[in-house]
């Protein structure tokens, strides 16, 4: 994200009474953050308990094609008479699983690459950083498209594509903090008293990167859900009959003149989930790093 604008005003002094207040408490105190937490928790529960919550098998067809919401189908049925509520619940499962796997893998790989480049510098930095810059210079969706185009549509390739897309931003952030932290006197003294590199990394470098990594993690999740949906809409993501919000929207659009429900339900799900992660990300940013406060535009 674009936060590289130099702060024009000095950061307000932060009152600290006995260390950092508990993160969750800070987030929940912010009303907007609390809304974000609620949305994320509800959506996660929906995804985890989809098999219990869904009234029907998400792939079971019926004769009630494009039925409006009723006692039988609470949110209506799609063009094959499948229950939209059940499909939306399983769609949450698909979307959140894919996004979590992607952001987690990209995060781990990105952090390692960023540490190697920023802490050891030298040749490693000379190789990793330009490579990340090149990946960065591809528009996100196009890069994902390129990978999917080459490997073919499908869940594994989708995950692979998205991991590649999300690595550079993590690597960049961690490299930045690693570079600045390794110049600090306390790292120097760590070297002087003979601490191992691993120890310095885990004790000094990583803790300093936690805040930006956490923010990046949350906003990446929001973005990953959007890209997953886009690729699903284009028919290049998770393949049918497994329900995904993006592909539900693309078949919904085809029957829009007959019933709007198949186009409404998945879209609302995507919007609410992404909104939840965005709210959480913004609040995270403010809570973890007071210097960034007010710069997110919120």
């Amino acid at each position: 994200m674009v936060t590289e604008i130099a702060p024009a005003v000095a950061p307000p002094p932060v009152a600290r009474h006995g260390g950092r207040p508990h993160l969750l408490r800070v987030i929940l105190k912010d009303r907007i953050g609390a809304v974000g937490v609620v949305i994320v928790v509800v959506m996660t529960l929906a995804a985890v308990f989809a098999p219990v919550l869904a009234p029907y098998d998400p792939t079971a067809m019926s004769s009630q094609r494009l039925a409006p919401p009723s006692g039988t189908f609470l949110l209506g049925a799609d063009e094959a008479g499948r229950d939209l509520l059940s499909r939306a619940l399983y769609g949450a499962r698909t979307s959140l699983t894919v996004s979590l796997i992607v952001v987690f893998c990209a995060g781990v790989i990105g952090v390692v690459l960023g540490l190697l480049a920023g802490f050891y510098r030298g040749v490693l930095d000379g190789v990793i950083t330009p490579a990340m810059d090149v990946l960065f210079s591809f528009p996100t969706l196009l890069l994902a498209l390129a990978v999917v185009a080459a490997r073919g549509p499908g869940t594994e390739n989708l995950i692979l594509a998205l991991v590649i897309v999300f690595i550079p931003s993590f690597a960049r952030i961690v490299r930045g903090t690693a570079l600045s932290v390794s110049k600090e006197p306390y790292v120097e003294s760590g070297h002087a008293i003979g601490l191992s590199h691993a120890r310095i990394i885990f004790k000094y470098v990583l803790p300093n990167s936690v805040a930006p990594i956490a923010v990046q993690f949350t906003t990446s999740l929001a973005y990953a859900i959007l890209i997953e949906a886009s690729l699903g809409y284009l028919g290049l993501g998770v393949q049918p009959p497994q329900p995904s919000w993006g592909s539900m929207l693309s078949s919904g659009k085809a029957f829009m003149e007959l019933s709007l429900w198949p186009s409404l339900v998945p879209g609302i799900c995507i919007m609410i989930t992404v909104l939840g992660f965005n709210l959480l990300g913004d609040t995270f940013r403010d809570a973890l790093d007071p210097r960034l406060r007010g710069r997110s535009g919120r």
Binding site: A222, L226, A229, S230, Y233, G246, L249, G252, K253, M256, L260, S263, G267, I270, M271, I272, V274, L275, N278, L279, G297, R298
Partner: peptide, 22 residues
């Protein structure tokens, strides 16, 4: 306008397109 922009940031553009078409 902040709320609107946050919602705008969260909805997939193709879905907005679908709704506008509708």
């Amino acid at each position: 306008s902040r709320l609107t922009s946050l919602i705008g940031l969260s909805l997939p553009n193709f879905w907005l397109g679908i709704l506008l078409v509708y």
